[in-house]
Design a protein around this nucleic acid. Structure first.
Lengths: 227, 227
DNA sequence: CTAATATGTTAGAGTCTTCTAACAAATATT
DNA sequence: AATATTTGTTAGAAGACTCTAACATATTAG
């Protein structure tokens, strides 16, 4: 029998609109129709009619000619899709040996699978990670993001003092590399300078006054602010 | 951006028609429109028009008022969907700790994911299994099914020792029934006696010295010889 | 402030998948 | 064989998602 989605559930297409709106809403509340159509690679009229549809479902706030925003219901729905996406990426990398470049496309498809069991099981098998390796937080089963989400070191600027809180990934080589630099979880770090050319950072920590790390490495060092 | 399927690829709906046709074709070549509409829970005219569509794509053979069948191209396409379904079921059970009853619904969704990498990786992580947790054979990357070495238990005679290798079908009730008898894949079984009247068999296995199974059940227990 | 530009909306149409109602062909029954 | 039943087909329509063309409103620049 042809498996069909429950009527009260967002279609895959609707889910993609919600997710895009969610991403575009990071750091602001309202989003333009045009931003959304650019993000989804779809025409303005298409977005316009979908937005009306999402409004009748109580997922977005919207008035003619005004920018739009997610309702609380819409925000939660979107966060749950993002949760599925990020858990999937994490699982593919951590448990199935994929590289980070390969997983996005697969997660784009798996994020629409209707089975909280599947994703909760992934979560469990990975010991409930709070962030994905890019430092992006993974929403919990209720669509909430833990307050203390860590950020990649690469996002900060010179002078910042931080504490190493987590690693973006935990390959043996990466761990060995960090050991060789005597950098471990909990270490306090200060950013001494940033090379504008390639984004590499010079850090000082413990008895290391000046160690250089590439941008790629700094993106996998997840930190929290100190002081 | 909204991820869309390649134009030369079957839609999810088309894939479901191919898969149903494939299942209905087991043991025969041709299938009725009505059988297909019953299997897919869809009206006759709907199947009729989809079949015409699949014909123009070279996936089914069909003439007005005649029964239909898969072309070689359609057979292969269907087998590859079945491969994805069965690998997924197997992976969920073997690697993610799901029960047999829980995995079908999830696999129904994952089978439409477009990523041979994902499924080949599952295959590899499980050491290339030949059958899924319900005992059905898993087609290879080319859509071919390995000649099954398994035979129904009902073919054997008293004194034979065998190992349960696969199941002929996978209804939830059948699975529950086997669970209730503590009979699972891999269990070694000896045929103690056969009732000539109705073909039912008395078996001994593990800590069950004497359990009776009907002929119908024994025909769905696929086994390999032991010793 | 008015004109030019950017952004948003409406109208109308096309594809995909589905339906029901009405009709046609094939099969089974008497 | 003639009729009844089952099976298959055609026609027409609807909903979801998309488009382009034309028009309306907002915003920006002179």
């Amino acid at each position: 029998m042809l498996s069909q989605r429950r009527k009260d559930m967002a279609s895959q297409t609707e889910e993609n609109y919600l997710k895009a709106l969610y991403s575009l809403s990071v750091g602001k509340i309202e989003v333009n129709i045009s931003e959304l159509s650019a993000a989804l690679n779809v025409s303005n009229p298409t977005v316009n009619s979908m937005v009306k549809n999402l409004k009748t479902k109580g997922l977005v706030k919207y008035e003619k000619y005004k920018p739009l925003s997610l309702t609380e219901k819409g925000r939660k729905a979107a966060a749950l899709i993002v949760r599925k996406h990020r858990l999937t990426e994490m699982f593919l990398v951590e448990k199935m040996g994929f590289g980070w470049e390969e997983v996005h496309e697969i997660a784009e498809q798996l994020e629409h699978v209707n089975s909280s069991k599947l994703f909760d099981r992934m979560d469990e098998l990975m010991d409930f990670p709070l962030v994905d390796p890019h430092g992006s937080p993974i929403p919990d089963r209720n669509g909430n993001i833990s307050e203390s989400a860590y950020e990649p070191l690469s996002k900060f600027s010179v002078g910042r003092k931080v504490k190493l809180a987590a690693l973006g990934h935990s390959s043996t080589e990466f761990l060995k590399y960090l050991n060789s630099r005597e950098l471990s979880l909990g270490t306090e770090i200060e950013i001494k300078s940033i090379e504008p050319y390639d984004g590499s950072m010079v850090l000082s920590y413990q008895n290391h006054a000046s160690e250089t790390f590439t941008k790629a490495v700094c993106e996998s060092l997840l930190v929290e602010r100190v002081g």
